[in-house]
Amino acid sequence: MKIPYYPGCTLSTVASDFDRSARQSIRDLGVELEELPKWNCCGASFPLTPENVIGLAGPGNVLIQAMKAGGTVSTLCSFCYNTLRRTNNALKSDAGRRDVLASFLETDGLGDVKVLHLLEVLRDQVGFAGLKAKVARPLKGLKVAAYYGCMLLRPADAAIDHPESPKIFEDFLSALGATPVDWPNRGECCGSHLAMSETDLVRRLSGSILSSAQSCGADLLTTSCPLCWHNLVRSQEAILRDEGKETVLPVIYFTQILGLALGGDPETLGIANGVMGAEAVLKAKGLWPAAAAAANSGRSA
């Protein structure tokens, strides 16, 4: 099975681990992510005011490429997903904006693309039962906080699951053999683009997400958003530095944890370098390849 794929700018640069771990893991599940031959930045935020039609040109252009690729496009980044999905919804429901944009982009047939997040592909096309059957390294005993953030859940007509009580991320983690943590802040905002203007505010928002997950027993936190990743990791660095806290909550992409469960090498998946504390947590749980092997031989002896 092949699915057209839109990586977006961040996954081509600072979040390349996210992109690489996804392509590799999904291939192991018999799905090929086929990158759109031509793409541009989606704009990283949906233009909220209806008068701002020019803000739809970037994501509109990506949707045109998706139409050419067959009318479906999958994404990994929560921002790209949300922006493309809402743009498509807006163009579908608003003939005025659709006509203006179509004439500007010299196209017809806007507003008819199926925009999917990779978690939806895993749920609806691979199936969580099918996924479970392919797990080579069940993440037994690993308590994981599924962090949805804003962009996968809101607004309701662009949500990958119920906006107030979603379960897709938890079901995904259960399929991998991990234990999803029940915690209250999974859909709260990390501070988003305020990273540019209000670092202290971001630190407070991200800090409360981290401490909520930790106090509910999470060993690590998983996300599908490179900006959430950035805010959570950089805030945590600052908190550890300034407040002398010692407990670290590693933050990793959901495709990295997927790759690990499918038997992938942590080095290749990008878990080994730069992700604070992930290695120590996984080693302690016997989920690091060498440790896992040692534990296995220990049991058989």
Partner: peptide
């Protein structure tokens, strides 16, 4: 936000999406 005053380290380390979204909003 003054783009000129953004710290060099922020531009280097932050994801593109933060810059693009921030520029669009601020």
């Amino acid at each position: 936000v003054s783009v000129k005053a953004l710290p060099e380290e922020f531009i280097r380390r932050s994801p593109q999406m933060a810059l693009v979204a921030g520029f669009r909003k601020l």
